[in-house]
């Protein structure tokens, strides 16, 4: 007898969800919103500031071409290569800047921790797909463009109904 009640209970639990809002959201039209501007690091206190570890943001005016980010990535992903960029850079005598291959990057953020000049951070940008492997290699010029700010959706909890949805 109790087995029948438990089977009916299982059915009822599923049927209830016909009247609840769905948890998923429509991805390309709606996008997830993250808190903060991305993963930042303060070399003075040696502590990072929590945020999403996505595509990097390079401040070319602050970068000195010291290659510490490239050294940090060695043995982890070997994604960073220093490439020369034409032009006058007062802080960067050798005119070399990091170029990141996102086909290799594992988004651990140790390159951000290695930068002592506040030049390399990570942003909320996570849409990095391309049609070929070449398009995954981001040049210093591409890395210095901040990602567009878009309003996204976050999880909203409805305590009364005990349900969650994105909005």
């Amino acid at each position: 007898m109790s087995a029948i009640i438990r089977a009916l209970n299982a059915f009822a639990s599923g049927v209830q969800h016909l009247f609840k809002r769905r948890f998923t959201f429509r991805y390309p039209e709606q996008k997830l919103e993250f808190e903060g501007e991305g993963y930042l690091y303060d070399p003075k206190t040696q502590v990072g500031i929590s945020g999403f570890k996505g595509r990097h943001l390079l401040h070319m005016d602050k970068c000195t071409g010291c290659q510490l980010c490239s050294l940090a990535c060695e043995n982890i992903a070997m994604a960073i290569e220093m490439v020369p960029i034409e032009g006058q850079w007062p802080r960067n005598k050798k005119s070399i800047f990091p170029q990141i291959d996102y086909g290799r990057c594992v988004f651990c953020g140790f390159c951000v921790d290695a930068c002592p000049f506040y030049a390399l951070f990570e942003t909320n940008d996570y849409e990095l797909c391309g049609y070929d492997r070449r398009s995954l290699v981001f040049t210093p010029k591409q890395l210095s463009i901040p990602p567009p700010k878009e309003k996204g959706v976050t999880v909203i909890f409805d305590e009364k109904k005990g349900e969650a949805h994105h909005g």
Partner: peptide
């Protein structure tokens, strides 16, 4: 966990 760790699964 992404709020603290930064990524969805492999936080380092």
């Amino acid at each position: 966990s992404q709020m603290i760790g930064g990524t969805r699964i492999t936080f380092s």
